[in-house]
């Protein structure tokens, strides 16, 4: 601090007493209104610290006098939203799938709800829009393992496939190669016959040899000429849609080692209304029967 306040001779303003090579620094403090506004903001922040959650502690934080909590805020918002949806949801719970379909507004609500539920729960495997991936069925096409009628779709969602649910869809296909049920050459012949069913590229002679093997080992589930059996979850083999790949090597691998995709049961995890909405959505993706 300068011992004596010096005034600049040109402007008449006080100097800070700092001087560099004869150049003196004028003391031009911040405007009063600015300073006081700043003090007010400090005071306001202190009030905030007291009223709201603010200071992080080791395993907790100061809760504030108002007891405000963002999680509660969100929970309340969700409750409000659910209360708004409640009339629609309760109608969906009691209506049959056909009744929902027939009601334009209800159907639109169900389709939107179904899409959201699908994206939250199903799209991880089945992909957005039900596009599917290797091992995860495409839900937009007209080929269904366990049936594409609304009831069948609903059943699959509820009980899952090879899940822990007692009513789960279940169909163990034998591991023809791994368990030594067929020789390697027989498996290859059978594979050629299977490829021939959908008109894919195959070895004609091998397919001829494979036909009796198919008739003996496969026809019980996959049906005559590979028409499949949704009752048993046996895939159609006479179309160009392949869950695990339609090339010869993939088919051989399927016969040798079997395939056993899994899907969790959603009954209990999703409520009835949501499962109904999901059913409608999946059915409406384009392949519904």
């Amino acid at each position: 601090m300068p011992t004596k306040i010096e005034k600049d001779s040109v402007t008449g303003t006080e100097t800070t007493g700092h001087e560099w090579d004869g150049i003196k620094e004028l003391n031009t403090p911040l405007p009063k209104w600015w300073i006081y506004t700043f003090y007010v903001t400090i005071a306001a922040s202190l009030v905030y610290y007291v009223l709201y959650p603010s200071i992080p502690l080791v395993s907790s934080y100061t809760k504030g006098l108002l007891g405000y909590d963002q999680r509660e805020d969100v929970a309340r918002s969700i409750e409000v939203a659910q209360a708004q949806q409640a009339p629609m949801v309760s109608r969906i719970r009691t209506a049959t799938l056909e009744q929902i379909r027939a009601d334009g507004a209800l159907n639109a609500f169900a389709m939107t709800g179904g899409r959201i539920a699908f994206n939250n729960n199903c799209a991880g495997c089945h992909q957005a829009g039900g596009a599917g991936a290797k091992g995860y069925p495409n839900l937009a096409d007209d080929d269904w393992l366990w049936g594409g009628a609304p009831d069948a779709i609903s059943g699959t969602i509820r009980h899952g496939v090879r899940s822990a649910d007692p009513d789960t869809r279940q169909n163990p296909m034998p591991r023809f190669g791994l368990d030594g049920m067929l020789k390697r050459s027989e498996i290859e012949d059978a594979a050629d016959y299977v490829l021939s069913l959908s008109g894919a590229k195959h070895n004609e002679a091998a397919a001829k040899r494979g036909e009796p093997i198919y008739a003996e080992q496969c026809v019980a589930c996959h049906g005559e000429k590979g028409i499949g059996n949704p009752e048993l979850g046996a895939p159609r083999l006479n179309d160009p849609i392949w869950l695990y790949g339609g090339d010869r090597a993939s088919v051989i691998e399927s016969i040798s080692n079997s395939r056993a995709g899994m899907m969790p049961a959603w009954a209990g995890r999703l409520d009835d209304a949501t499962i109904k909405m999901l059913t409608l959505y999946v059915h409406g993706l384009g392949g519904g029967q």
Binding site: G129, D142, R236, P240, I241, G286
Partner: peptide
């Protein structure tokens, strides 16, 4: 044009777009 899925293969070999 629907982007997901971009196209769908059907059982009879047809292709479908949404």
């Amino acid at each position: 044009k629907d982007r997901m899925p971009i196209f769908v293969m059907l059982s009879d070999g047809d292709v479908r777009n949404g």
